[in-house]
């Protein structure tokens, strides 16, 4: 059984290196950490665990989740399975998360090909800090070694495998992470005009800022302007971007480009 598979099984394996030469001389297992602590999950709690495992259906972390269910069963008393009126379905998760979680645990740098709409595909070397789930999508927050700055990456833009490179324990994960990295973007406040009785999700988040003819004005805080742009676009005319200018321009250019393509 390889070291990687042992680690995936949950056995903490530490590579032992020769002090002077830096060669791997062997592996050490810490038995006190390896043993499953006494855990008895109630039938309702086990149903919650299978719901959590369903969340990762179809991606690599789903296998890990199903192994975790076996472990949860190992210490729990037998009882009839409970059905819960809850379910989870994800279509935007990626295989990259599993590798990243492992690299964060080992504090090991990763390398991957990353596509950005502005600058094309490039190889990135990153010290991974956290994986963040936001709106059903996954993001990596970490330190970009080549750019010498913290960055956020949307995992669906990672092309090909995530590879762990370099030594384990190569960096420390900061205790707290700057809010502007969560997930990327410069936070700000936008003004959106919405039709009466319309755009209730925006209304719930925003603050009333007067009226403009038939429209109600709202001030809406955002962390990611692109996400707000997509929300305005999705309202298909029930909302109008007023400010900032970058948002207005982005909404217009997207709609015009769509009309252009739709002419066929």
């Amino acid at each position: 059984m390889t070291r990687t598979r042992l680690r995936r099984l949950g056995v903490p394996v530490v590579t032992v290196r020769h002090q002077a030469y830096g060669d791997d001389i062997g592996y050490r297992i810490d038995p006190s950490q390896a043993r499953l602590p006494a855990l008895d999950f109630t039938p309702a709690e086990r149903a919650v665990l299978s719901l959590a495992a369903d969340y990762w259906h179809g991606v690599t972390l789903g296998e890990d989740a199903s192994h975790a269910l076996i472990k949860a069963a190992s210490g729990s008393a037998h009882a009839a399975a409970e059905a819960l009126p809850f379910a989870a379905l994800s279509t935007r998760l990626t295989d990259a998360t599993a590798q990243l979680v492992e690299a964060i645990q080992a504090r090991q740098e990763v390398a991957f090909e990353y596509a950005s709409a502005s600058s094309g595909t490039a190889r990135r070397r990153v010290q991974p800090w956290r994986v963040r789930l936001s709106g059903g999508a996954e993001y990596l927050i970490g330190y970009d070694v080549d750019r010498d700055a913290p960055r956020t990456y949307r995992l669906s833009r990672v092309a090909g495998p995530v590879k762990a490179v370099g030594d384990q324990g190569a960096f420390d994960v900061p205790e707290s992470i700057d809010a502007s990295l969560m997930p990327s973007g410069t936070p700000g406040t936008a003004t959106i005009a919405v039709r009466p009785e319309a755009a209730h999700a925006l209304r719930a988040r925003g603050r009333a800022a007067g009226e403009d003819g038939d429209w109600d004005l709202l001030d809406v805080d955002y962390t990611h302007l692109d996400a707000l742009r997509d929300e305005v676009l999705a309202l298909g005319g029930a909302a109008r971007a007023v400010a900032p200018d970058a948002l207005v321009a982005a909404v217009r250019s997207h709609a015009r480009a769509a009309l252009e393509v739709a002419r066929g």
Binding site: L36, A52, D54, W56, D64, A65, A68, K71, E102, Q105
Partner: peptide, 14 residues
């Protein structure tokens, strides 16, 4: 054996 980092992340993240 106890939960691996990936297993714990999968359950608690979900």
């Amino acid at each position: 054996v106890s939960f691996s980092a990936r297993e714990a992340a999968a359950l608690m993240g979900a």
